[in-house]
Design a protein around this nucleic acid. Structure first.
Length: 898
RNA sequence: GGGCGCUUAGCUCAGUGGUAGAGCGGCGGUUUUACACACCGUUGGUCGGCGGUUCGAAUCCGUCAGCGCCCA
């Protein structure tokens, strides 16, 4: 006996272990089956499963399970990435709590700690993915710092360098003062900050009392100003171009230059230029050959060294002692002091409140500081071109398509990719420096030494670059490094390129674009055919989930409460095209009802002795009920398959739900009860056969979304061995004899029951009152149908019998129109005839309204002349039907007039 | 400022030229032996506004408004 309700907590872990033990998730490079490949977006090794993972992983698992059932050799490649900054931060914090310090222990010892931490705590998310039911090929699990993947990183780095696509350059980087490292453009997020716009007065050289006013949001950087720019066409400042200003506090002479970067509309129309601390100013500096002194150090503290030589005492303007005293001061403290001093000197014209966007490190959360440093860069511009072309030509297709625009916009304006990070945890850059500064890039120290020996004719001391690579550098290789590249493995041959990449739109730049670039460059082929972009998970109100808002939902807790199937089905149902998913507890609870519904349907089958029967052949079905449900299941199969092919998880869920609940449970089982409760015989056997056959189809259709409950029932009902549904064949439509006739018959039964139920409910007839149904004007086929379905009609329409009206209509009937017939319910003692007249009049008005609308359309000569013939014909039929219904309702009204 | 997207029933959303839909909710009824996480019935929308194209527009075009996201 099945338990009263499904108990996911007891069943799910057991089944997952079984699948894993059976090797049900395993891909087989030796098989002849065509591959289906999804590369997991490797979660952070520091991470734990959040609701966003639940979405993306559920989607990936649905696709994988579905394709696997279709007979594809499915590989869902698992793994995690080493998450440079995040992991280093976690371990540093841990060490700090034990009173230890990274720098004190040194690089080697620190890395040992990180590896230890990874071994102990790094696998949390992989365990959690199992709870979700993710059918990843675990024996193939990889980590971006694996030996194999590290070898791929070395090879790629060295190759790109040799090809001139990876180089060192001294330019401005986004510097994170907390982590003390460069970060890429993408790791910077603009945040709106309420600040001020300070209008500073810079004295014009040789013209006492004349000032050029510059507006700035960052007054502390003025120490590093090397020019003031005005717009070339700005008449207000035309005479100043070429003249010099005395930079307050430092006393340094700086030129006024004409540059279009200066916007006459903004601020004062003149802008101070600090090339070493602002990206735009850097470009201006390059255009005008300005010097580029840095005045902030790695900690974002004031650094006077590079401007020391030019400090000059100028009465009322230049104050070297003050400037020197700022050395080592935090940037924000320095700002206050500088402003106070300028105020004293009368060099602040005004201060405006000003809201502006300030770049922040996405992990550290502090304002990033542009700094002039030497870093390694990848020539993304060059690598981007083939990637752009691949999407333009459809080698890779985004779903939904509109995301291609986002991809193009970024790729066409791509900047050099800064790949070096001043961290210890990561792939150390394979570059060695000779004492003269010459760099040797090689896959090993020995190779670098050999190259150096060749150059210098002797051995020299080489020092390895201390920096590591951006984590995304190794992630970019994921689609082929996980398959064994640079070795030519069977896996690489079979599973590259992947079928589809599934991710959120926020990752298009970080990862998708970079995989495209690296994949095409090193494999001469795009890394995946489709990129399915899903939305973000938000709370019920549509708010982004965040810890600070306190609206985060823990997927594991939801699984605990409602089961993984319920969570997964909810996600499927809510994942529409290009939409964010608004998820609340209530939604999961609601969809759990569907899991329970399936379970209860199974209990009904069990009570009726219905079990799997492979010998049942749908093509031999005779009873209309069996043929009807088999036919309906064919359509459900088609709908589900088409929906999955189109990545329409909402439609897939809706089609399966509609069929399982709305057709199988609500009608097939209910209509089948009289037969199932009746004596054994061919009809009963056939209904049982259809019941088990279609239930098997339902289990298969739902398996990608609800793997656990379906797998459990699959075995309990004898469809297959334990844990075998996962590899059962995806259903295909079956042959159903004369499906159209079965549809027509069941449509009639459903309509009759529906109409009678509706009238009874509206007339407040208690369910305990049962009446005969008298058919007036019924065709012979209708009467035959009524006869065939009498037991079901009795049961579902609360009827005692169904028979043709003999003679005149009895007094006090309720009447409904079903097709050509009028059905009379003799209810003289129960109903209010006035109310019945009102009800009929309302129905007649609706029919009349419909008829009028259609008649007007058909009365339009243009419509008849220009619309498609089948549309006109359809409208003619609808008009006829509406008019016939009006006539029958008129007759019904006449019958009970007084 | 530039770009993208969204606006359809109380809520969440499908619907991309031919009868406006689903789920949930609301309301009324029901212990009819799978299921109250249920069953039956029912209510509910000038498809954001305006203009255009068309025989016909939620759907195509233009425009305006509101909201969201990305970029500067």
């Amino acid at each position: 006996m099945l338990t009263k309700t499904f108990d996911p907590a007891a069943v799910e872990p057991r089944l997952y272990e079984l699948w894993e033990k059976l090797g049900a998730f395993t891909a087989d490079p030796a098989s002849s089956a065509p591959p289906f490949v999804i590369m997991i977006p490797p979660p952070n090794v520091t991470g734990s499963l959040h609701i966003g993972h639940a979405l993306t992983m559920s989607v990936q698992d649905m696709l994988t399970r579905w394709r696997r059932m279709q007979g594809r050799d499915a590989l869902w490649q698992p793994g995690t990435d080493h998450a440079g900054i995040a992991t280093q931060m976690v371990v540093e914090r841990l060490l700090a709590s034990q009173g230890q310090d990274r720098r004190a222990m040194g690089r080697e010892a620190f890395l040992k700690h990180v590896w230890e931490w990874k071994a102990q705590s790094g696998g949390a998310i992989t365990r959690q993915l199992r709870r979700l039911g993710a059918s990843l090929d675990w024996p193939r699990e990889r980590f971006t710092m694996d030996e194999g993947l590290s070898r791929a990183v070395l090879k790629v780095f060295v190759t790109l360098h040799r090809q001139g696509l990876l180089y060192r350059d001294r330019r401005l980087v986004n510097w994170d003062p907390v982590f003390q490292t460069a970060i890429s453009d993408l790791e910077v997020e603009s945040r709106e900050v309420k600040g001020s716009l300070w209008h500073l007065k810079y004295p014009v050289e040789g013209e006492p009392g004349r000032f050029l006013v510059v507006a700035t949001t960052r007054p502390e950087t003025m120490l590093g100003d090397t020019a003031v720019a005005v717009h070339p066409e700005d008449a207000r400042f035309a005479d100043l171009v070429g003249k010099h200003l005395i930079l307050p506090l430092t006393g340094r002479r700086i030129p006024v230059v004409a540059d279009t970067h200066s916007d006459p509309e903004k601020g004062s129309g003149a802008v101070k230029i600090t090339p070493a601390h602002d990206f735009n100013d850097f470009e201006v500096g390059k255009r005008h050959a300005l010097s580029m002194p840095s005045v902030l150090d790695a900690d974002a503290k004031v650094m006077v060294a590079e401007i020391e030589a030019e400090l000059a005492e100028v009465p009322g303007i230049g104050d070297p002692a003050f400037v020197r005293a700022l050395d080592g001061l935090d940037r924000f403290d320095a700002r206050k002091k500088i402003l106070a001093r300028l105020e004293e000197l009368g060099l602040i014209e005004k201060i405006e409140a000003h809201t502006h966007m300030v770049p922040h490190g996405d992990r550290s959360g502090v304002p990033i500081e542009p700094r002039l440093t030497m870093q390694w860069y990848v020539d993304a511009k060059t690598l981007a071109q083939p990637a752009i072309k691949a999407v333009e030509t459809g080698q890779t297709v985004f779903v939904p398509r509109q995301w291609e625009n986002t991809f193009f916009a970024w790729m066409r304006d791509i900047q050099p990719w800064c790949v070096s990070r001043q961290l210890w945890w990561g792939h150390q850059i394979p570059a060695w420096y000779a004492p003269d500064g010459e760099v040797f890039v090689a896959e090993s120290e020995a190779e670098a030494a050999a190259a150096a020996r060749e150059k210098y004719g002797r051995d020299v001391t080489l020092i390895r670059d201390a920096d590591v690579l951006d984590t995304w550098f190794s992630s970019a290789l994921w689609p082929f490094s996980t398959l064994g590249w640079p070795d030519e493995t069977p896996e690489l041959k079979k599973y590259y390129p992947g079928s589809v990449l599934v991710t959120g739109f926020d990752i298009i730049f970080f990862w998708v674009a970079r995989m495209m670039m690296m994949g095409i460059h090193f494999m001469n082929e795009v890394p995946f055919r489709h990129v399915y972009i899903h939305g973000l998970v938000r709370d019920e109100k549509g708010q982004k989930m965040s810890k600070s808002k306190g609206n985060v939902m823990d997927p594991l807790e939801l699984i605990e409460a409602y089961g993984a199937d319920a969570l997964r089905f909810t996600i499927a149902a809510l994942t529409g095209p290009g939409r964010d998913v608004k998820l609340g507890r209530k939604r999961v609870e609601d969809h759990r009802a569907f899991v329970t519904k399936i379970w209860n349907a199974a209990r009904f089958l069990e009570m009726n002795g219905i079990v799997a029967d492979a010998s049942f052949d749908p093509a031999t079905a005779k009873s209309p009920l069996a043929r009807w449900i088999l036919d309906a299941s064919n359509r459900a199969v088609e709908e589900c398959t088409e929906a999955l092919e189109a990545y329409r998880f909402d439609e897939y869920a809706a089609a399966a739900y509609r069929f399982a609940w709305g057709s199988y449970c609500d009608w097939f089982i209910e209509l089948g009860k009289p037969v199932l409760n009746g004596p054994d015989g061919p009809e009963k056997a056939e209904v049982k056969g259809a019941a088990q056959h279609v239930f098997g189809t339902i289990l298969k259709l739902l398996h990608p979304a609800m793997p656990f409950v379906t797998e459990e029932l699959w075995h309990l009902f004898g469809y297959g061995e334990q844990g075998s549904l996962i590899r059962a064949a995806w259903p295909a439509p079956v042959t159903v004899p004369d499906a159209e006739a079965a549809r027509a018959e069941l449509d009639w039964v459903v309509a009759l029951i529906g109409e009678v139920r509706g009238a009874r409910a509206e007339m407040n007839v208690p369910p305990s009152v049962t009446v005969p149904l008298l058919l007036q004007g019924a065709a012979g086929t209708t009467l035959a149908r009524a006869d065939r379905w009498i037991d079901a009609i009795r049961r579902l329409a609360r009827a005692t019998e169904v028979k043709p009206l003999d003679g005149a209509a009895p007094k006090g009937v309720a009447q409904v129109v079903v097709g050509e017939a009028t059905v009379m319910l003799p209810l003289a003692d129960v109903i209010d005839l006035g109310a019945e007249r009102t009800r009929l009049a309302k129905a007649r008005a609706a029919a009349e309204n419909e008829a009028k609308k259609i008649a007007a359309k058909l009365g339009n000569a243009d419509f008849v002349a220009r619309a498609k013939e089948e549309v006109v014909e359809e409208n003619r039929e609808r008009l006829a039907a509406a008019e016939a219904e009006m006539a029958r309702l008129d007759a019904a009204l006449a019958r009970i007039a007084e």
